[in-house]
Write a protein that binds this DNA or RNA. Structure first.
Lengths: 113, 113
DNA sequence: TGCCATACATCGCACTACAAGGGGACGCCC
DNA sequence: GGGCGTCCCCTTGTAGTGCGATGTATGGCA
């Protein structure tokens, strides 16, 4: 595993949580999620379209997010995603799991030397 | 992705870092790594043999760890793993990446609401 | 006309965790 | 002896997931 590959692996599984977190604040469409993620992490976190759209469909299939086509003033359509109540519950559970995991990581990777 | 699956995904990629971290303290053999990991995380982190051994071989192939068969007083043999200097460098890099990633995760999943 | 950005989507590849299985040794209990 | 648990190493097949490449369509800009 390369160092670059490490970041890729870190993203695995966490993309779902990151998406759920962003949607917990407000409804967003696909590209908006990508941009927000990159902006809030100061360019550190980036997901490609080949990652994002399958992830959104996966979350929708599980009933964690809901999608709805929305007409813009210009007539164009955008697919807006929002969090369901089931998604909120899942997000809370994931946050707890993350906290414990992060604590364990810090304990093991940074011994009180 | 189930909640249980989330922990599995969190482990992906991080197993290598966890193994490197443990070996940075002292040389260990396979089963010892498994037990230490579980003990230090208070039972939270567990890797199966089907995860551990391929990971160790992977790290060895990359030159990050070194293995050596060691004879025990009883005559049995154990395969001891130790960190190489290349492994130390990689570990330091991974720790940095982890710190930035964890910070980004905390920022995004826990907005200053 | 060409190129880039926006916006949604799919496909194949590479990687990795894990359950399941194999092989062998030792000790304990019935 | 036979069964069971622990230790110790290992491999194989499956499932899940990020990503590059590609497709489709619209619109702005030179």
């Amino acid at each position: 595993m390369t160092l670059r590959g490490y970041l890729t692996q870190l993203l695995k599984g966490n993309t779902d949580v990151l998406i759920l977190s962003l949607l917990s604040r407000e409804s967003m469409y696909g590209h908006q999620i990508m941009k927000e993620l990159e902006r809030e992490s100061r360019g550190f976190l980036r997901v490609s379209e080949g990652t994002l759209y399958p992830a959104l469909h996966r979350l929708a299939r599980e009933g964690l997010v809901r999608s709805r086509w929305t007409k813009l003033p210009g007539g164009k359509e955008r697919k807006m995603y929002s969090l369901t109540s089931k998604g909120e519950t899942r997000l809370a559970d994931c946050r707890s799991t993350w906290d414990v995991f992060a604590a364990a990581m810090n304990t093991i990777t940074k011994p009180a030397g």
